[in-house]
């Protein structure tokens, strides 16, 4: 069970959170006019790295805030957690 550092509440156990998948997906500008390919790319295609990953979590059993976590998908190490609108911390080497 992961220990997730909520930027608002501090470290809490994974069971308090909801996972939201890959972070910082860019909804296509002019999405109603974009091509099917562009839309499908946004809708379905996700990175699946073996390594550092920016992802979204929501602290449902706490502050109910969505935020971002930098997690290593193999080791589960968490390098950073940051709020919406904050600068993205660099990925560890």
């Amino acid at each position: 069970m992961l220990l997730i550092p909520c930027p608002w509440c501090g470290e809490r156990v994974e069971a308090e959170f909801r996972y939201g998948g890959e972070a910082h997906l860019k909804r296509p500008d002019n999405h109603l006019l974009c091509s099917d390919e562009t839309w499908a790319e946004y809708l379905f295609m996700r990175r699946n790295p073996k390594g550092w990953h920016r992802e979204r979590w929501m602290h449902l059993a706490g502050c109910k805030r969505w935020f971002y976590v930098v997690r290593h998908t193999q080791t589960h190490r968490i390098a950073a957690a940051y709020k919406v609108g904050e600068a993205w911390p660099a990925l560890p080497a």
Binding site: R18, G20, R27, R56, M58, L60, K64, W66, V84, G85
Partner: peptide, 17 residues
Amino acid sequence: AAGVYVWIEDWLQTEWL
């Protein structure tokens, strides 16, 4: 109920600031 709540909060907090 919970899924809809989380989903709307998601849009509000991350896209429709």
